[in-house]
Design a protein around this nucleic acid. Structure first.
Lengths: 218, 218
DNA sequence: AATCGTTTAAAACGTATGTTTGAATTTCAT
DNA sequence: ATGAAATTCAAACATACGTTTTAAACGATT
């Protein structure tokens, strides 16, 4: 167990270092040293650094998408609430190799990096490989928010994504901050429990400016 | 006007390239070429690449903090609503060299990068230089959300920050996406108009699980 | 046991980076 | 106009990077 094959050890080391320092800041020498393998092994097993980055994502996303697709099948003929729809995502995440809270933080940090320092190749890779499941989930979101305009829905989805990714990217340091300032013992589950009502409320928010017109009618 | 001094031209080029490609991915040769100055000029005027990064932030943050501090003075003895408190932030941003929507996006992208690929030096620089104003704003948030526990408040602040920074970091590409998919003509002001009710609603959300206990009493 | 494809190893390659140097040039008060 | 200070410039420096190469070690098949 402690002695995985070379490729696996490289992936482990790479994902840890990437999530700590970013892609460009992590050298192949960093990775191979941490993995205890030869420098050339990366290029031998993965071809290039870019492909290694994609492989790190694929190892997370492949099982996740599989699980998520299954979960989406289950609710297709049901009437879930927004909260349930969010919970579905979280549950799937924890059911596809991310049950470990530490791994969860790592994955979210990688996701944040993919957005912020998203070199073209990563974005193309992600959208081309995993857009189908995302589209299906969006359909479900549409169903539970019929009162929203398409524009409102579009932006609120991305606000939610931002709140989740951004927070979970640095969930470790934020938890440490919270525990220090508030004298608590926070856990990733607690953060998610805080996040869900925030997201649900934001998604369902009633825009005051939009409904102001009614005042004149009354 | 087109002929600023060398240091200014470097800052202009650096901030544009940083926000496009990130810090590590932008070389001094990229910057000096774009600025039309000699390579050594960066080290002459700023000392190092790290110091240049900090200088790019300082040029935005110095006027912002000044304005923001003034605005905070004005409401100190008032009873603003959460929406007004958010609006205060936005107004200050647009009153301190960020009235240009393009610049606004650049600044938010830099802020996002500072978090995601936040090399230690940047984080230390930002928190040490500009923590005072942030603390004052937090005090105001406390005042308008007395019903929240400190833990709820802490996390919701960061959720809001995440939604704002993450979305505004890639506001250009998101707007393009929205305009393409929904056949609209979105503008940064529109996005902010969408963002504010989302954030306000999330901040004030009532946690269902928390109030469930009351059901048993009734 | 010999052979073949697969994997690891050490070293070197070419390139790009941040930084420094020292001379040339400009700036500007005297 | 002059001389000192500030700035610009081309060139080189040392270092780190991703990648390639070549040979050695390994493992399964015959």
């Amino acid at each position: 167990m402690a002695q995985k094959d070379t490729a696996g050890r490289i992936l482990d080391a790479a994902e840890a270092l990437f999530s700590e320092k970013g892609f460009a800041e992590t050298s192949l020498r960093n990775i191979t040293t941490k993995a205890g393998v030869n420098l050339a092994a990366v290029n031998y097993h993965f071809g290039s650094k870019k492909s290694l980055i994609q492989a790190v994502f694929a190892r997370y996303l492949a099982p996740f998408c599989e699980q998520f697709s299954l979960q989406l099948d289950l609710i297709e003929n049901q009437q879930p609430s927004p909260e349930q729809l969010l919970k579905l995502l979280v549950i799937t995440l924890t059911k596809s190799g991310l049950e470990n809270p530490e791994k969860f933080g790592v994955f979210m940090r990688l996701l944040g990096l993919a957005y912020s320092q998203g070199q073209g190749h990563l974005r193309k890779f992600l959208t081309s490989e995993y857009s189908e499941v995302f589209t299906r989930y969006m359909k479900e979101i549409n169903r539970v928010t019929p009162q929203l305009t398409p524009m409102e829905r579009f932006w609120r989805i991305h606000f939610m994504l931002g709140a989740a990714v951004f927070t979970m990217s640095s969930v470790d340091s934020l938890m440490a901050m919270a525990d220090h300032d508030l004298d608590t013992k926070t856990d990733v589950k607690d953060v998610i429990a805080q996040l869900m009502p925030f997201l649900a409320s934001g998604l369902m928010a009633v825009d005051q400016d939009k409904t102001d017109g009614l005042k004149n009618v009354e």
